[in-house]
């Protein structure tokens, strides 16, 4: 028995049989064996392409050409590229704002849904819709709702006398930036609400009851008990969601293609635009790879927090 095994039952208890059966019973044999498929898939289809991608970003690769190593030239060029700077700015802005909103509204929704009222099952299922619908198509539907000519939202506000002219949601810099954040938030709320709902279910009811008996108000209970207990969930939900938001492509590409001007350009749209449409594969790869350090920091923070929580 290896010393890393969790328990060390007496050897007399182990099953006998062929060496194969005995081998399978050893954690140090069975463990790697069971983990192998996952490792294989990730190595072959993720790690290897990633290494290739890094190599491309360090080369002058163009679509269809033979790449030559150019060191950090692509990255240095990005540093002077004003469009890239705009993309960096909006990527951060987009991610921070939409994550913040998703988190708070998702939590709010979870708190509401964490009760057994009439129709709570239906409400929980409906809530998931935005997350289930194909992004491209829900983006198209949103495109109609925010259309400068056909927006049903503008129409309603006009009828209510709140505005005098249809709102130009996607044609002006800040409205466009904010609109995309709202749509991203719309798509992500169910994920947070779901996660938080699970997190809330895991909190022992006795804890809350005890606090109530002590006379604590609901805000105090939330701040002192619920929220601290939800922190580990928050970290995990946030880290995965952030990764999705940063790597999100469909939504922006369908709705604005990075416009107006370059106001809604993000890492992925710019990388795609440069590498695929413009053919500068090396530069596109550099844009894409430049995200990874940021993501790594996030991942490390997330990992630290969850491990310390134990």
């Amino acid at each position: 028995m290896s010393d890393t095994a969790p328990v060390s039952p007496g050897p007399q208890a182990r099953p006998s049989g062929s060496w194969l059966r005995r081998a399978f019973d050893r954690p140090n044999v069975l463990g790697p064996l069971l983990a192998a498929p996952a490792a294989l898939i990730l190595l072959l289809l993720l790690a290897y392409p990633l290494v290739l991608g890094i190599w491309l970003s360090l080369s002058n690769a163009v679509l269809g050409g033979t790449p030559k190593f150019v060191g950090l030239a692509n990255y240095i060029q990005l540093f002077h590229d004003s469009t890239y700077r705009e993309a960096v700015f909006y990527s951060f802005f987009y991610t921070i704002c939409s994550e913040g909103l998703k988190l708070s509204l998702g939590l709010g929704l979870a708190l509401l849904l964490n009760r057994r009222f009439r129709g709570y099952r239906l409400a929980r299922a409906i809530m998931l819709l935005p997350w289930v619908a194909p992004t491209v198509l829900s983006a198209l539907a949103w495109g109609w709702l925010l259309n400068p000519q056909f927006s049903a939202i503008s129409w309603l506000l006009m009828k209510l006398g709140l505005i005098h002219q249809y709102i130009d949601f996607l044609g002006q810099i800040w409205p466009a930036r904010i609109s995309l954040i709202v749509i991203n938030m719309w798509r992500g709320i169910p994920y947070f609400a779901m996660g938080y709902l699970a997190g809330l279910t895991a909190i022992p009811a006795s804890l809350i009851e005890a606090a109530q008996i002590d006379g604590a108000g609901s805000w105090t209970i939330f701040r002192r008990i619920t929220w601290p207990l939800l922190l580990p969930v928050t970290t995990i939900l946030l880290s995965f969601s952030t990764i999705w938001t940063v790597t999100d492509f469909q939504l922006i590409w369908t709705m604005t293609r990075g416009g107006p001007l370059n106001a809604t350009q993000v890492f992925t749209t710019l990388a795609y635009q440069r590498a695929i449409n413009g053919g500068s594969l090396g530069q596109g790869a550099a844009i894409a790879i430049s995200v990874i350090p940021i993501m790594l920091i996030l991942a490390i923070v997330a990992l630290r927090t969850t491990r310390e929580g134990k």
Partner: peptide, 24 residues
Amino acid sequence: LKFRGARVLSTAIFFSYVVPPAIL
């Protein structure tokens, strides 16, 4: 099972999530 290398593997799996698919 907590075999040798389990911790490394779990970290690696977690990190593998940071690779953006839109580009790779």
